[in-house]
C-alpha cells in the first residue's frame, strides 16, 4: 500500500532487565549493573560533593533546597496513605518554634534542640492532627491549611514566643559547610529511608489505606493509628527541617508558618511526581534553585510556584520523575505502520 508508506508509530519496549517483579532484577553484565546503579549513585554523589564545592550564597541555596526537599518528602509520605496536606508549614513551624524556644529560653545547644524538636515536633503535629485524622481528602487539606494560619495568628495576638518580633540571636551551627552537609545528609537519609519504608510491608499497608480504607479495616488494621504514625514520621521530618533553618538563620519568627513552606513542597511533588519520593526530591532540587535565581522577582516567587503547580497538575499529571523513569527503562523505536 503505497499511500501508507512513511507512516510511523511509536513502539515501546521494556529493557529486559526486570524479572518477575519491579524490585527483582536479572543482571548479567557489568553494563547492566552500571545501568541500574547510575541513576541512584550519580545524584547521591553529586549532592555529596556540592557542599564542598559551593560557597557563600549558593551553599545557602543548597540548604534551602534540602530543607524544602525534606518538606516535600514528608508531604509525599502523607500522600501515600491518603492524607493530602496543604499545611507543611505546620510541621516546619512546630520544629522551628520548639528548637528556637528551647535555645532561647533554656540556652540549650543545637545538638540538643534539633533532636528534641524533631521528636517533639512529630509528636506535636500528630497530636494536633489526630482529632481530624478521620477526615478525607479535601476536608483534611482544609484543616491543614488553616492550622498554621491559626498558630501564626495565635502567636501574633497573644505575643508569646516573641510575638510579632520573633526571637533572635539564637546559637548557630559551627560552620556553614557543616550545616550544608547536615542538610544534604538528612535529605538523602530521609529519601532512602522513606523509599525503603514504602516498599516494606508497612508501606504496603499505608498505600492500601489510601486506596481502600474499608478493605484495610476489614483486615483488622487500625487505620487511624497507622495514619497517626505516618503523621508522626512526616511531622518529625518537617520539624527537623524547621529546627535546622532556625539555627541556620539564628532567628525565629512568625514567618516559620508562612505559606511558602506549605505551597512549595506541594509544587515540588506535583512537578516531580507523586508516590516515589524520588519525584519529590527531584522537584525540590529543580524548583528551589530556579526560584532562587529568580530572586529579583521578590514576592512573585510564590506566584511562580503556584503557576508551576497548576501547569504540572493540568499538563503533566504523572510528574517529571515518572516520565524520565519511563524513558530510561524503555526503548522507544519508530516502527513503520504496516
Amino acid at each position: 500500500m503505497p499511500d501508507r508508506k512513511g507512516i510511523y508509530r511509536k513502539k515501546r519496549l521494556d529493557r529486559g532487565i526486570k524479572a518477575r517483579a519491579d524490585t527483582i532484577y536479572l543482571i548479567a553484565s557489568w553494563r547492566e549493573i552500571f545501568y541500574l546503579l547510575l541513576p541512584r549513585a550519580f545524584p547521591v554523589g553529586f549532592l555529596l560533593i556540592l557542599p564542598a564545592v559551593l560557597h557563600g550564597y549558593w551553599q545557602k541555596v543548597l540548604v534551602f533546597a534540602c530543607v524544602y526537599g525534606l518538606l516535600a518528602l514528608s508531604w509525599d509520605l502523607l500522600a501515600s496513605c491518603g492524607l493530602f496536606s496543604l499545611g507543611q508549614a505546620l510541621f516546619f513551624g512546630a520544629g522551628a518554634y520548639l528548637a528556637g524556644g528551647l535555645n532561647y529560653y533554656l540556652h540549650l545547644p543545637p545538638l540538643v534542640t534539633v533532636p528534641a524538636a524533631t521528636v517533639g515536633g512529630g509528636l506535636l503535629c500528630a497530636g494536633l492532627l489526630a482529632p481530624v485524622i478521620r477526615l478525607r481528602g479535601v476536608y483534611f487539606a482544609m484543616v491543614t491549611l488553616m492550622f498554621p494560619l491559626l498558630l501564626m495568628r495565635g502567636i501574633e495576638t497573644t505575643g508569646v514566643l516573641g510575638g510579632t518580633h520573633g526571637l533572635s540571636a539564637l546559637s548557630p551551627f559551627p560552620g556553614e559547610t557543616l550545616t550544608a552537609y547536615l542538610a544534604v545528609l538528612a535529605f538523602l537519609a530521609c529519601l532512602f529511608l522513606f523509599r525503603r519504608l514504602i516498599n516494606s510491608d508497612y508501606g504496603l499497608v499505608l498505600m492500601a489505606i489510601r486506596d481502600d480504607d474499608r478493605a484495610v479495616m476489614s483486615g483488622g488494621i487500625n487505620i487511624y493509628w497507622r495514619k497517626t504514625q505516618a503523621l508522626f514520621l512526616a511531622g518529625s521530618v518537617g520539624a527537623f527541617a524547621g529546627a535546622l533553618m532556625t539555627h541556620h538563620f539564628q532567628f525565629l519568627g512568625m514567618s516559620a508558618f508562612a505559606l511558602d513552606y506549605s505551597i512549595l513542597p506541594v509544587a515540588a511533588v506535583a512537578l516531580g511526581g507523586q508516590g516515589s519520593f524520588a519525584g519529590a526530591a527531584l522537584g525540590s532540587m529543580i524548583l528551589v534553585p530556579l526560584s532562587e535565581s529568580l530572586r529579583a522577582l521578590g514576592g512573585l516567587r510564590i506566584a511562580l510556584y503556584c503557576i508551576i503547580l497548576m501547569v504540572s497538575i493540568v499538563a503533566l499529571p504523572e510528574g517529571l520523575f515518572h516520565y524520565l523513569e519511563r524513558k530510561y527503562h524503555q526503548f522507544e523505536t519508530r516502527a513503520e505502520v504496516e
Binding site: 504496603l204 476489614s218 483486615g219 483488622g220 488494621i221 487500625n222
Partner: peptide, 28 residues
Amino acid sequence: ARTFQMVRLFYNLPAYKNIIIPLCSSRV
C-alpha cells in the same frame, strides 16, 4: 472476618500481596 459482596481488593498489587495486609494486623 468478612468477605465483601463486591470484592474490595487492591487490583494493582500482586495477588499474594493482598494477603499481606491482614497479616500485618495486631491480631495475627
